[in-house]
């Protein structure tokens, strides 16, 4: 049975319906970046017409950092809930009894988090642009915010940074046995890419179209690799029973090789540490 866009779509629709029924989830996603944006916005508005270019760069860099924090940080918590949350509310097992493939489930879940996270990021970006044009007294600020590399970075990095956080979050969610642990670990997942963003925002690297494209490509490859890792981590048996599946070359119905049994028993004896 092949990958089905219809099944993927069914999962995505379900996710979006759940947000619609619980708008609080999305509203709280948007609140945090709004709070963080207050300070850089005030800074931008207070920059006078004759301020040095380096001050303008720092202010704009800080603004973009916050703008890119949103798609990297916000989906992590929801993504970390995605699988372990279904498991805790008892809805995972019925899903797994259908022909749904793990790739379809995981992509549906990921898209369900990407859509609101990136949507919020783009809306915030638009709000900043409009506010700058209306209220900023320094023309260089308005110009810097509207630069091609900045816009390209926002457009490209928002979904790619969200992708990183989401795949790490879902990966944690497939292995965690507790929602709280998954969400706390998920939050930490957004730190590595943000470190790079911070370096760019504060001009340690000079922002350019080339740098934006290169960094975007690296993130894209990382997202694809992470997706494959998460798919491999998704173990129906473990999720349903809490026990690791003994996989056989042709699936169920055959006795696993003795070496596999010995390996599993050794892992069990050592509490998960594979000393071998």
């Amino acid at each position: 049975m092949k990958f089905s866009v219809r099944r993927l779509g069914a999962v995505l629709r379900k996710e979006l319906r759940e947000y619609r029924r619980s708008p609080f989830i999305v509203v709280t996603m948007a609140l945090l970046p709004l709070v963080f944006l207050i300070e850089p916005l005030i800074t931008i508005f207070r920059i006078g017409p004759s301020v040095a270019a380096s001050v303008v760069d720092r202010a704009v860099g800080a603004t973009f950092l916050v703008l890119l924090v949103a798609p990297a940080l916000l989906p992590a918590v929801i993504a970390a809930y995605s699988v372990v949350g279904e498991r805790e509310q008892g809805t995972l097992e019925p899903l797994l009894t259908t022909p749904l493939r793990r790739e379809e489930l995981l992509l549906g879940k990921a898209l369900g988090v990407v859509v609101p996270a990136v949507g919020i990021a783009y809306v915030l970006f638009a709000v900043i642009q409009v506010c700058a044009r209306l209220f900023a007294s320094n023309a260089a600020v308005v110009s810097a915010l509207g630069q091609g590399p900045h816009i390209l970075a926002e457009v490209l990095f928002a979904p790619l940074l969200a992708g990183w956080s989401i795949w790490v979050g879902i990966g944690i969610s497939t292995r965690a046995s507790d929602v709280r642990v998954a969400q706390q670990l998920g939050t930490l997942s957004s730190i590595p890419p943000l470190a790079v963003v911070a370096l760019v925002s504060f001009n340690v690297f000079t922002p350019s179209v080339t740098l934006a494209v290169v960094f975007a490509l690296v993130l894209l490859v990382a997202d694809v690799v992470l997706f494959r890792i998460v798919v491999a981590l998704f173990d129906r048996e473990r999720l349903i029973t809490g026990a690791r599946a003994l996989r056989t070359p042709s699936g169920g119905g055959q006795v696993p090789p003795a070496s596999a049994v010995r390996q599993i028993r050794r892992i069990e004896r050592t509490g998960g540490r594979d000393d071998g």
Partner: peptide
């Protein structure tokens, strides 16, 4: 629990294509 009876069934009808 946050979805209606029909919405729950729509999800699974989709999964069974």
């Amino acid at each position: 629990r946050r979805l209606t009876v029909t919405e729950n069934l729509q999800l699974f009808a989709g999964l069974y294509e």
